[in-house]
Design a protein around this nucleic acid. Sequence first.
DNA 1: TCGCGACGATAACAAATGTTTATAAATGCA
DNA 2: TGCATTTATAAACATTTGTTATCGTCGCGA
Lengths: 189, 189
Amino acid sequence: MEQITQAIRQMIAIEAQELADFFRFSFVKTFKKQEIISRPNTIPNEIFFINKGLIRVLITDQEGNEHSLHFALENQFIADYSHFIQKKPALYTLQALEETEVVVLPRVGIEWGYANLKEGQKLGRLIAEFYFIYQDDRIKNNYYRSPKERYDLITDIFPNIHNRVPQHMIASYLGMTPVHLSRLKKINR
Amino acid sequence: MEQITQAIRQMIAIEAQELADFFRFSFVKTFKKQEIISRPNTIPNEIFFINKGLIRVLITDQEGNEHSLHFALENQFIADYSHFIQKKPALYTLQALEETEVVVLPRVGIEWGYANLKEGQKLGRLIAEFYFIYQDDRIKNNYYRSPKERYDLITDIFPNIHNRVPQHMIASYLGMTPVHLSRLKKINR
DNA sequence: TCGCGACGATAACAAATGTTTATAAATGCA
DNA sequence: TGCATTTATAAACATTTGTTATCGTCGCGA
């Protein structure tokens, strides 16, 4: 639990005993390459923290097409957070693109943390704010960056992604077809 | 301060005295139609709560083109929240599209609330979560709804918007040109 | 080791969207 | 009230992006 401890301590002050109590609810789990970590249509009751590996978040539309809408890397929290909060059935699929080790944070543990950790609510606020900022950047970029710029800037968001994720999933994340991304790479603007 | 009181009490339990102490930092301000409420390039140190009116959030790109990226209605909080949190110079412009009355919440008041309100951190968490969910829906829709569907669904997000906002700003919000939106309205899919 | 499927590049064509210009109605202000 | 400005539509054309098909490489499992 060293990595998640460090991540939490970057956000709040928390004593060892508090942390130990909080982690009572959690456990480590590993997933094989390509394995599905979380499926849509059931209420998500877990948040994951990635120790090692890489998780793709995708949504499947009515026609069965997959849209990759996020990649989560080491030392990040990931879930269908929106539907976790709303306690509504998930729309997102979480898939390990590599052998992946996560810390599982069940809802009961998180609710216990809000109620009992001295700075539990603050931790929740900072995490929500962090992902709000990430999304805000993303929405903003869609308005005032060209598709080629968004491609060029992707390594700022997901370092080393080109060595870890197939290009057609990057194209999907960028909201374009793989054919078109291949074309864009050849030209400059 | 009735409206904002009600909005806060939908999220947390708070006594009258606490509220009064919190509101010490705040004041009401009105803006005329078309007036600029907040400009880019300075660090945003205020969050606004709309009592009456309608605020457009826009970003101006290098070529000077304006992109409308949000409309905020009555009983909502609005700011360049991302840059408020990060204490970085704003990128967004806030403009009143109607005669608009807001409650101004200065940073010192918000920080006082986090430190002193019993449920201040929780309030911050719930607000951040609320806007996270809004953004998540928006990003999701970009992946699996057609442009026409996004147009048809806009009144779910901004009720009565067609009577309050010119169509070319709606087109901008949808990421298309006004000419193209006009075209889309004629066809069905 | 072989063979199949995943992956990425490419070309040709189709569809969607942007650009420019024109026009007419609606709006707001002097 | 009258006039200038804003707004929405329309058409013609340009550009971007999607679709389909083909091909060559690579990696992985039987």
